[in-house]
Write a protein that binds this DNA or RNA. Structure first.
Lengths: 263, 263
DNA sequence: CGACTTATTGATGCACTTCAAGCGACGTGG
DNA sequence: CCACGTCGCTTGAAGTGCATCAATAAGTCG
């Protein structure tokens, strides 16, 4: 089974056998990390680059009033701190959400891999650009969508990102976040997350139990939150090409979205 | 007077004379653009890299219900689409807010400049990393802070970013956004932006009239929104070094922030 | 000067937060 | 093995911060 990094990068563009072999060589030092452990703290100057190979981690910041804010979810194949080559100090922290497998990669190894294969260099660059694109979409998500659409959008995004690294079967994937953590991600209260999830369940869109999420109707969930995957910039997967223009079937409308006529 | 790009990059690290000269060479094709014009549309595949040399522009997305969401503000010295080297298609649009001067830079010229000077290459990389860092801070801003703190934080950030490129005098700078545009940036209604601005004025923190913003007490404004500039990763300016640990004087507390004991 | 955009203010309603309590699952130790 | 504590989920009730609607005032540009 290919490692998550290789899988992810091939969602962008094909790699040569030799490049794949080089990538494997980056993942020599892999360690297990328990849930809710910090990998990197704000202000740290990490020596190595960390890569999530299994499990969920997140970027986060703590506001002075104590509330935590989750800025990004890191899933298998995601780099934690590719910025280490330019920025001296971390401006946010990184911690695990579930038990994880994490690779420590010496920055020199990254450097050499990038220099030896232009496709690897471009892929790494792509990683950090997609990180930014996801961030932009999240900004729109929090700023502009209703809680229901917001959470639905997150779940759609994860479906695709996890699909690329082979973590999805039958529109179902491991989703280890507690409702409080979802709240910290979505800028909502945990109580309201609970109610919103109940609503999504009632609409027959999702099933979430014991940390496993099942999307009951992908088409409808995507239509529900107007999910368009262009910002993930996948072009080498079965998802990258199609635009989902096929009929989504009946779409439950979110209450807040009544005013605009998008039909 | 040095151009905004060079000024900005030197906020990160010093450039050689030759590198400065090379950067000047990138800015041969400069054109004026009126306010509220689109520079790049979502879905475009731009040939050149665009750079804002004067005025305000923004990244934005339009949701299917018609509401616009401003994802980033682009000020003099900011690149619009450095991603052009890796991503084929724009996942968001870029438009001017005020009248601007914009440079068209052939991607080959960027490439060559980066290859000829490692400090330029690193600086460009730094640009896109800082873009991401700002985005993360915005996410926290929208997700976690009260409207008053939110707007104050934006104004503090702009103060520093504009300071670097010499657009600030006496804690005062041109701020061309309408209240509706501020609302689109902050995830608020325009009415509420109006009321929040009134509040900030009443607290004696800012003065905003005829598209000119004056910060009446920088220390207090920063303390008011807990502004910490680490995420801008400036280290070569008079701002980059100091942490503002000096006494901020009496700090008006935001109403929403009462519960947590940060004193 | 008149047309149009932007800013301002008031009134109303509800979506969300906050506070609070009960419940189930799980693990630990007596 | 059951008692007990913890943690996450769930639900209720109450308050409010913000959006929405609407109308007027103040700029701004032809």
């Amino acid at each position: 089974m290919p490692n998550a990094l290789t899988q992810k990068l091939e969602g962008f563009e094909p790699l040569t056998d030799h490049a794949r072999w080089t990538l494997d060589g980056l993942l020599l030092k892999v360690r297990p990390v328990g849930a809710r452990r910090d990998l990197i703290l704000e202000g740290d100057k990490p020596e190595n680059v960390l890569l999530v190979l299994d499990g969920f981690a997140c970027r986060y910041k703590i506001l002075p009033n104590g509330q935590r804010h989750i800025i990004a979810l890191l899933v298998p194949g995601d780099f934690c701190n590719l910025n280490v080559f330019v920025l001296d100090e971390m401006d946010h922290a990184i911690g695990t959400l579930s038990p994880c497998k994490v690779a420590d990669i010496p920055r020199r190894a990254i450097d050499e891999a990038a220099k030896s294969h232009s496709c690897i260099a471009r892929s790494f660059w792509w990683c950090s650009l997609v990180d930014g694109a996801v961030l932009r979409e999240w900004l729109v998500n929090i700023g502009g969508r209703s809680p229901g659409q917001r959470i639905a959008h997150l779940l759609c995004e994860l479906l695709m990102r996890l699909e690329v690294v082979g973590r999805v079967t039958d529109d179902s994937y491991a989703f280890p976040l507690t409702q409080t953590e979802i709240a910290e991600t979505m800028g909502l209260s945990d109580v309201h997350v609970n109610r919103t999830l109940r609503e999504l369940r009632a609409l027959g869109l999702i099933h979430l139990k014991r940390r496993v999420l099942t999307i009951l109707n992908v088409q409808r969930l995507k239509a529900f939150c107007n999910f368009t995957p262009n910002y993930l910039h996948l072009r080498n997967t079965r998802w990258g090409e199609r635009q989902d223009t096929s009929g989504p079937g009946p779409v439950p409308r979110d209450t807040r979205d009544v005013r605009a006529g998008q039909d």
